[in-house]
Amino acid sequence: MAIYGLWVINKAGGLVYQRNFAEGLAQLTSNEYLVLAGTLHGIHAITSRLSPMGSSSGAQVIEGETFKMTISLTVTGTKFVLLTSLAESKADIILQKVYDIYADAVMKNPFHTPEMPIRSEGFDARITSLVGTGQT
């Protein structure tokens, strides 16, 4: 079980935070990450419109052969994406805690501009203590 990475995508589809934890993910440039986040934002929008049962909150888990991404959508449209190994069972709980930390260390910080990249030492430190090196 491993946690590979965390993304935070703002409501416009921009990547405002990206961090890798455990080794194993392909190394990408920051530009490539931005493109991927924008694409995921689009895919998520499509999945939320496809639902046959009325309104939907969109894709929650996307699984591959070697890893899965768990997506958590907040009511304000911010998306938290956690890249983990397939066996990771606590991804949902971790994302909820990330949301808590985001609300505390980012939204209550007067030096953060909403929808802009997150540069907050407090957020970094709390994420580090939550996820650690990514090995669980």
Partner: peptide, 14 residues
């Protein structure tokens, strides 16, 4: 508790 002062304003104390 929730304030992270950016590096270029490091002398600031809220």
């Amino acid at each position: 508790r929730y304030i992270s002062v950016p590096r270029d304003m490091s002398q600031l104390s809220c």
